[in-house]
């Protein structure tokens, strides 16, 4: 089948404003949007710039807006989005070129919540034990692949780049509710700041955008509730 692909192009070295590149591509309905982008890049216009690595929904590097919604290009099938497909960079991060954005601000927010296990207690002889229930408490938020689809779909982040964003809160949730971690209160203090969790307006774009089906808004609400229970 033949599809029409409309891609938002922008080269900061030569362009003042973004423009649209239009391409016709022959694909199978079961191909992915990433395959169509590859076809354009490899056979029609080598200047098209996009980011992808594993191409199998694990590395999270090809998050783009497909027909107006944040998705991973490697996980969306052509048959699910129709014959006219619009591809744009994700919103709220500086565009480096075409579909590639600068992920540094996103990673800065990620680092700000200390996304690693903190426990200064002497390690036991074997491992730090955890029950099935304790592990299940944060199971959902371990699935995050840092693609930024959630954070860049959030209107609160669009209007205020200082907001840590859903992805950073998901990462904080993963450690706040880990029974082995001892820095939960520190993370809650970080998220209690004005740029923290209370910027969330429960809009649900993040949950809809997450390619790993993480219940992002629920995780944010759980962090909010934990703050209230801790008197923050």
């Amino acid at each position: 089948m033949k599809i029409q692909l409309k891609i938002r192009r922008f080269n900061p070295e030569t362009d003042k404003k973004p423009s649209w590149g239009k391409y016709e591509v022959e694909v199978e309905p079961t191909d992915r949007v990433l395959d169509a982008l590859h076809y354009v890049k490899w056979y029609q216009d080598g200047t098209l710039t996009l980011r992808r690595s594993c191409a199998h929904g694990i590395c999270g590097s090809d998050a783009v807006r497909i027909n107006g919604r944040n998705r991973l290009a490697c996980k969306v099938l052509i048959k699910d989005v129709g014959r006219k497909i619009t591809v744009e960079p994700i919103l709220g991060l500086p565009v480096v070129k075409d579909l590639v954005v600068d992920m540094q601000p996103f990673m800065d927010h990620y680092r700000s919540v200390m996304p690693y296990l903190i426990n200064d207690e002497p390690p036991p002889v074997t491992e730090r034990h955890q029950s099935i229930e304790e592990r299940e408490r944060f199971d959902d938020t371990t699935k995050c692949i840092l693609c930024a689809a959630c954070t860049t779909s959030c209107p609160s982040f669009w209007t205020m780049g200082q907001y840590v964003g859903p992805a950073a809160i998901v990462q904080a949730h993963r450690f706040i509710f880990d029974s082995r971690d001892r820095a939960g209160r520190e993370r809650l203090n970080i998220l209690a700041a004005s740029d923290g969790v209370w910027r969330c307006r429960t809009i649900y774009n993040c949950t809809d955008a997450c390619p790993r089906d993480i219940q992002v808004t629920q995780a944010i609400a759980e962090v909010k509730k934990e703050m209230l229970l801790n008197g923050l």
């Binding site: 919103l91 601000p105 927010h109 209107p155 205020m160 780049g161 200082q162």
Partner: peptide, 12 residues
Amino acid sequence: MYRGRHVGYLEG
């Protein structure tokens, strides 16, 4: 601190 790429109302 990053203050965000301006996302206009219409684009949002």
